[in-house]
Design a protein around this nucleic acid. Structure first.
Lengths: 197, 197
DNA sequence: TTGATATGACCGACTGGTCAGTCATAAAGT
DNA sequence: ACTTTATGACTGACCAGTCGGTCATATCAA
């Protein structure tokens, strides 16, 4: 009922706890995968007791989904900016998209989300559907636009690739996976890969 | 001491059991991942009791590694044939390699090995190293040869891509992953992808 | 041929330990 | 004082790995 100061401060503290738990959870899930991660480990990393986690999340599953979602949000916002590309050449736009992808996903810790998705996706269909709808299909649509635009301007040859933007991001994905799996055995120069790409 | 008939038949039965266990294990690991797979489930699928598994394998870890290894062997043998390509154009050779990869890995159940590797690899460094040494580096070397050959014949432009055969297989990998994760949401035509590729 | 004995592959109930989720109690906040 | 938030010991389910016992088959003896 009282509402003289809309954000009293308790809200902030609560959000703070929540974010600490989410980031601790994300880190543990990255390292161990879903099944092998212990709630105790998350609690310890977040600096709370295990019971506290259950004040904020219903179950391990929920926590996992929320953690992944929270990690994707920034990427989502980044994608929004894709849609607006009023500038000149389609090639420049395409190059820019690829560079952004390398810089913001492949070249950062965020690439670990990719691995988590690949590893645990099939067990979390809701999450997969969310990711597909909110991230993938938007990104692919943006790609298709740019490619189409390039064809219309005569920059690109019309080819089957228009319908398979997958092809364009394949090399980047493989770079991310390689770095996470074999970098100690045979290091990979992401910049070199990007240029070759 | 008796040795008139060296393979009495017991050997065959033993190998048979072993193969049944391996294939049951592989199927379960594919579906559930390492941590979430129960030995009971493997035993049931293989039609043996749980104890029997331990007559053939030391531990869940060992069983996992052996199962994955056994699934990779055929791929390894296929790679051997890569090295010999005395024919004409480098482009034809390259196309052939890509086609073989699509037909024998991406287009079959074997693509699930890829996912298993990505999901569990980091927890099985020995397996990763084995895969890297026996499969990846051989395949990449073969690729580099073909590319090099193409450049010498003037077929391909010399470019940074020579050193990054990763780039070539990226699209195929993404195709495999897509099919395993999003095929129900947005089916992907592997043949179309291959052609675009 | 037939019964007696030996072998070892196979079984599955059991153990010890782990971990998600709960709840009685305590601390903090108002 | 009372409500909200946090704690961590506890519970019950689950599961990797074990081990004493069974039984089909092989070997031998008579």
């Amino acid at each position: 009922m009282n509402n003289p100061t809309p954000p009293p401060g308790g809200k902030d503290a609560k959000n703070e706890r929540m974010r600490e738990i989410l980031s601790a959870a994300l880190e543990e899930f990255f390292q161990e995968g879903f099944a092998a991660t212990r709630l105790d480990a998350i609690a310890e990393r977040a600096g709370v007791a295990k019971g506290t986690i259950y004040l904020y999340f219903d179950s391990k599953e929920t926590l996992f989904e929320e953690a992944v979602r929270s990690a994707i949000l920034p990427v989502l916002q980044r994608i929004e900016t894709f849609s607006v590309d009023p500038q000149g050449s389609a090639e420049a736009a395409l190059r820019a998209m690829i560079s952004i992808f390398y810089r913001d996903v492949i070249g950062t810790d965020r690439r670990r989300i990719l691995r988590l998705f690949i590893a645990e996706g099939p067990r979390f269909p809701r999450l997969l559907a969310f990711y597909h709808a909110e991230v993938l299909s938007r990104g692919m649509a943006a790609m298709r636009n740019v490619l189409q635009y390039g064809v219309e301007r005569g920059e690109f040859r019309a080819s089957a690739a228009i319908n398979y933007p997958h092809v364009i991001f394949g090399p980047a994905l493989i770079g991310a996976l390689w770095k996470m799996m074999f970098d100690n055995l045979e290091p990979l120069d992401i910049d070199g890969l990007r240029d070759a790409h």
